[in-house]
Simulated assay, not measured.
Amino acid sequence: MTSPLASDAVELTALAEAARRPAPLPIPGTANFRAAAAGAPGLRPGVLYRADAPARLGDEGRASLEALGIVRLIDLRSDEEVADAPDDVAGTEITVHRIPIMAGSVRDAVTTIAGGGLPDLRSLYVMMLRDGGPAFGRALALLAEDGASVVHCTAGKDRTGLTIALALLAVGIDLDTVVADYARTEANLAGDWVDTMAAKIAQYGLTLEGSLRELVAGSPADAIRGALTEVVLADGSADVYLDAIGVDAALRSRLRDALRAR
């Protein structure tokens, strides 16, 4: 008979092994929880995760996060999003850091659509990178601290995708790897997560299809590649942009210490 302690050890080993692969981790209540750029050469495993909102973890989900050694959540959502689905980590030692990066609720999307202003993803990302620099800088400063972090928004796609991209570029991960990590998101969200969002949007008389579906649940590689190339890598490297948002050479050095393999 296997003892409870042995079972816990087996579960932890399985999670740690799964975190080395790009597929989403089996964290209850999530669809897009995974290690950022899992398996990328030179990236330290077990310190940087990305996710959709961990609002329905339950006891098993919270235990899984603790087993992974997570010490902080960096929540990029708006006040309305958080009020609707708060992080489910009560009773753990995990600290939640709120760094809102633009509004992202269903109501906000409906308001934008009603005004005829539905942007494409590349344009949205360019706007976020230009307007949200200080917030991205604060998030990267947290990632330079000791311990494993989870960066998340609602889908773990747009705000999370850009934050993770900036962190990876800051420590020397190549653009192709950054883009590939982002592009995996769409497949992870397909199914129950998309169905839930479609039901929410239907309450406003809208159908989740076409350009709206891509905006909510798509992760086309050319969207983030184009935005990063236009804004972050315009000078040939990310350093000029990172300096401008408060991620100077000293902070980049701390990020490398935290995120690169030792």
Rank of each mutant, 00 (worst) to 15 (best):
M1R: 13
T2P: 15
V10C: 07
T13P: 07
L15D: 05
A16P: 00
R20A: 15
I27E: 07
A31K: 02
A35N: 03
A36L: 02
A38T: 01
A38C: 08
P41Q: 04
P41A: 04
L43G: 09
L48M: 01
A53N: 15
R56Y: 11
A63D: 09
A67S: 14
G69H: 02
L76N: 08
R77E: 01
A83E: 12
P86C: 10
T92F: 04
S105C: 11
I113Y: 06
G116C: 11
L118D: 06
D120P: 03
L121E: 08
S123N: 04
L124W: 13
Y125I: 01
R130M: 11
D131N: 15
G133K: 03
P134H: 05
F136N: 11
F136I: 10
A141S: 04
A141V: 01
A141E: 14
E145D: 02
D146W: 05
H152G: 06
G156N: 07
L162A: 03
T163H: 00
L168T: 05
D174H: 10
Y182A: 04
E186L: 00
A187I: 09
N188E: 08
G191E: 03
T196L: 13
M197I: 03
A198D: 07
I201D: 03
Q203F: 02
T207Y: 14
L212C: 07
A217K: 09
A217H: 08
A221M: 01
D222K: 00
V231D: 00
V231A: 03
A234H: 13
G236M: 03
G236Y: 03
S237L: 06
A238K: 05
D239V: 02
Y241W: 01
G246T: 09
V247T: 10
A249R: 06
R252E: 13
R262M: 08
